[in-house]
Structures are given as C-alpha cells and as structure tokens.
Amino acid sequence: MTKDSAIKALLFDVFGTVVDWRGGVARHVGPFLGRRNMAVDATEFADAWRREYSPAMEEIRSGRRSFVRLDVLHKENLVKVLRSFGIDIDSVTADELDELNLAWHRLDPWPDSVEGLLRLKRQFIIAPLSNGNIRLMVDMAKRAALPWDAILGAEVVRAYKPSPQVYADTTDILGFSPAEVCMVAAHNGDLAAARQCGLKTAFVLRPVEHGPGQQSDLRAEQSWDYEAADLNDLATQLGCPT
C-alpha cells in the first residue's frame, strides 16, 4: 500500500497502544507489595488501579470537576486502590506514594513500537494524543526512546479523551485540517471519537493489553482507514521504508 498523501501527521494513543501499561505497573508495584507480605498479584493490583482511570476522568469530562493533570488523578486513584486491598494508607509515606505513582512514567514499549515509530517519523509528524500529562509523556519517552516530534494531549488542551475538544484542538495546534491527521489507537472508542471530529483512523491490534484473558478491542469494530497488526505493519501500509 502506498503512502496516503493527504496525511501529514499521526497522533497516537499511548497507554496500551504504544506501551504496555499493565506489565509496567505490575513490575513497579510488585516490590512494594512484596515488602508488605501481601498475597496480592501485582497484575491484579495494576488492573484495579486502571479501573479507576476512566471514572476519575469522567468527573472532569462531565464538568463536575475542574481539569487536573493525570498524575493527580493517578495518585488519588492509587490511594483508593491501596485502601481497597486493605492497606492502611497512614502507613504509606508520601515518598512511597510518589514513587509508586511514577510507575506510569516508567512503562515499557511494545516490541514493535520504537522501530515502527522511527519508520513513521521519517514521513509524518508523530506525537502522542494521550490523556497522560506532559511530564509523564516526556519521562516515558526518554526512558523508552519514543521518538516523538512533539508532546500533545490532554494537558495541552485541558480536556480528556474522548471529548471532541481534545481531537479538534490538537489538530488545530498542529495547523492541519482534520483530514490531514490520523489517529492511531488500539481502542475502537478512541478511534470513533476521532472519526467524528474528521480525523482519519488507524486501528492497531494489542490483544494482550489487559492480559491473556482480554475480551475488548480484539478486532476493528468499524471500517477504519487502516487496520494493522502492529506499528511496523502500519508503517508498511503507509509506504514507510524499513
């Protein structure tokens, strides 16, 4: 497939699409759980923490709460999850909480991510369109060698996906029309919201984002502009050389 000459920029969902949040969070919280002799599986803890993600953002999307960056929401959610697992929050120091919260800054890329992004970067502007805040995205990019051209997303426009404002304002910041921008995500809902704002769409399959028993986003649920097995496959479809 040849390059779509209309596309000038690719915007990427990050958590789950570019990096393995579940494995990274579990790796980071495992030692903390071990020190407390807790019979809690680290991936179970990661899943519980992630389940608080969307409800916390919905408070902001709905207007019930003013915008705060994702690091703040993650830390508040961490306290909730610690309590739900029976941990006395008063026994956890502020430094421990801050260190645990940095798990989201230290996630590993999927095996194809860096190579695929480098190929795509040669022909397109590439940037995250993530709910993660700027510092989080920068720390992650430095650690994982993610070669972004810019850091964009929720904190820049002060709104959370899938609010239309996120896609529209980010496209405007880049100076392109929506048809010149392609949203890349492993989540059908993210792509549906982007398409409604006029962006082109690329579905990337990540069948173990939620572990081996994943039941969601195992296939493209609409006729997206592109459907790829991974980021290298997307680069090939878009005509990027190896």
Rank of each mutant, 00 (worst) to 15 (best):
W110Y: 15
W104T: 08
A144Q: 06
E155Q: 13
L117M: 12
R143T: 14
R69L: 09
V68S: 11
A168S: 15
E96P: 10
G116K: 12
F67N: 08
L117F: 05
L120Y: 06
K80W: 00
G86F: 10
S130F: 07
E155C: 11
R122E: 15
L97M: 15
E155A: 12
Y167E: 08
A144L: 06
K142A: 14
H105W: 11
R119P: 12
G153M: 09
P111Q: 05
P147I: 03
A144K: 03
A179T: 13
A145I: 03
I151E: 05
I89M: 13
V157P: 00
T93V: 02
V181E: 10
D139I: 03
K121M: 08
A141N: 01
G116Y: 12
G116E: 13
D98F: 13
M183G: 05
H105P: 00
G153K: 06
I151D: 02
R122V: 15
R119D: 14
P164T: 07
D98V: 08
F67T: 00
M183L: 14
K142Q: 10
A159D: 15
I126L: 03
S113Y: 10
M183W: 11
A94I: 13
L146K: 06
H105A: 14
C182Q: 09
Q165P: 00
I134R: 14
R106D: 12
D71H: 11
E180Q: 15
P147T: 02
W110I: 04
F124H: 12
N131P: 02
Q123L: 15
E115I: 13
V184R: 06
A150P: 04
Y160V: 02
R83F: 01
D95Y: 04
L102D: 09
D139M: 08
